[in-house]
Simulated scan of single mutants.
Amino acid sequence: MEISNKVALVTGGACGLGRAFCEMLLSYGAKVSICDLDSDAGENACDVLGQKFGKERVMFCHCDVTDYVQFEEAFQTTITEFDRLDIVVNNAEIMNDKFWELEVDVNLNGTIRGMLLALQYLGKDKEGHGGVVINIGSAQSFRPQISTPIYCASKHAILALSKSCGDAYHYNITGVRVIVLCPGVLHHDASSSAFGNRFKSPSHEKAWQLDMKGVHPQKCEHVAKGLISIIRDAKSGSVWLIANEKAPKEVPYSSITM
């Protein structure tokens, strides 16, 4: 899929990696709907990116991915504004094992809601024209992370969801490619202090240092650049790792599950 003139909806798009995704998509000619719970940050991102790329190419939707009705309204508003929707990036997440029920509701259930809505509005079997869904996993989707086990579990589950929905059986019906992008640790996430009081216990906070051993943090912009090539060329059901400032690498699902 070529990016130019396509419309993308990005959850958690107001700051951090989500904002980098929005900016990169805009730089390649897409129109972007920034969806985020933080209205102040979202409006600011919309203003700044609108000035840089054109106000007619970017919009903001207040969106809580734990609320299906509100999430669906973001899809509807985006399609009303831009007349179409081609790309959905389910990026919204939190890492806070102390509030694990919310963590799971945002990271996993939010991705499920976004996945179902994308199939409803993009699926050829639903009178859509097909498209691409990028579900954001994590490098921790592939291996245990002893410091944040519940966050890790939510990211593991995204792989199973995406592999199932992205199977050729479903793609042949819907015309919607489903792909997993798994970023490694980002610069602003590299230290335990970046998460404040988000670990389940002091022992889990200490375990963070073990999890981070040998890890090289990367910039959000590097991951966002990789998103473009994945949208363009990746097969439905494929899983991609972007870590340590290296190019995107496809990870065979059999090597994860064996």
Rank of each mutant, 00 (worst) to 15 (best):
V48G: 03
N135A: 02
C165H: 12
I231P: 01
R113N: 06
Y151R: 03
V88N: 00
T80N: 14
G131R: 07
M212F: 10
A8T: 06
G184M: 00
V132E: 05
P183C: 01
V176A: 09
A194H: 02
Q70K: 14
V180A: 05
A243C: 10
S162R: 02
V69F: 00
C61F: 09
F71G: 02
I173L: 12
H62T: 06
G50R: 04
D40S: 13
H188G: 04
S201N: 15
A160H: 09
Y28V: 04
C15K: 15
N244Q: 13
A153Y: 03
E245A: 10
S164H: 12
E81N: 09
L102N: 08
I134S: 01
K219H: 10
D47Y: 04
F195P: 06
V185S: 01
D97K: 07
K219N: 08
I87F: 13
A168W: 09
G29C: 10
K206T: 12
K124H: 10
K235G: 11
K124F: 09
L119R: 08
E101T: 11
V10F: 02
E127H: 12
E245H: 10
C15A: 15
N135R: 02
P202A: 15
K126E: 10
S191N: 11
E2R: 15
G42C: 11
K6F: 12
G54T: 09
V215S: 03
